[in-house]
Amino acid sequence: MELQANKKNIWREIWKARYIYLLLAPVVIYLLMFNYAPMYGIQIAFKDFKARLGIWGSEWVGLENFEKIFSTPTAIHAILNTLRISFGRLAFEFPMGIVIAVLLTEMPGKKVKKAYQTLFTFPHFLSWVVVGTLLRNFLASDGAINQLITSMGGESVRFLGTESLFRPMLYLTSNWKSMGWEAIIYMAAIAGIDTSLYEAAEIDGASRLQRIWHITLPGIKVTVVVMLILAVGGIMNSGFDQIFNLKNTMVYDAATTLDIYVYDLTFTGVPDYSFSTAVGLFKTIINLILMLTANKVTSMITGEKMFG
């Protein structure tokens, strides 16, 4: 009896929520059609894909494609290079948002501050195609910077065409485009700090530097930690858009990251769909583990989960 009543209740609940389902329908249909449906194609990572046989018709090869990742020097290089660039970004890009936020907070002059903020955040809203074209021209051997160097008697530098300079240029150009935008999150966190703390410190005679060190930085600590964990979670993505739009044949080694490697495997030379899908899947799985770990650690620190 009770069970039946419950069953009836459920149907009543569902009927009551009919409009909610209606509002939810478009996104669910989309997810099924365009996010879940393509997943059946992942099987080609375990197959020897032949276009003429199709996804279903191609022959199973087990884990052969995955074993190939670890016996292909370029694949291993791509993995290591991805990690190298990601750690470089953590060291040279991650702190810049905090630095800009603190500097902007301390800078006097409301109008100028506002203008700077507009300028600093603007490049973030341009695509890497635009920024890449712009900066490639600016840094070219006959570009403005090199003209300036040579006019002062120096020797022209191939900023984007030298293996050893390419990675530092990635950090530099990425900061150029995004550090102002990254700063906004920290500005918001700084704005949330209790102003009476600063007033009390001023009365106690604390210098500005002491106030930054003892109030501002501790005040944004949680935000910094959360952002850092997020950044670590995305360590397998090394910024495809940027590298793809800045790279050239002279910096093949420095520019080959996992994403670039998968792209090259798929669309240049003789395409190897199965192997490229295997490399992509390998990356996705490591990403998945990193992201879930990041989520767990963040929720432990803030008491709130990022993803539901």
């Binding site: 996104v27 365009f34 449906a37 393509p38 059946y40 998968v262 798929t266 992509g280």
Partner: peptide, 21 residues
Amino acid sequence: FFVLLLITMFFGGGLVPTYLH
């Protein structure tokens, strides 16, 4: 339905399967 949404944030078909789709 929420998990259905969240999964797509971490996992997808990838480059080739999506293109073929």
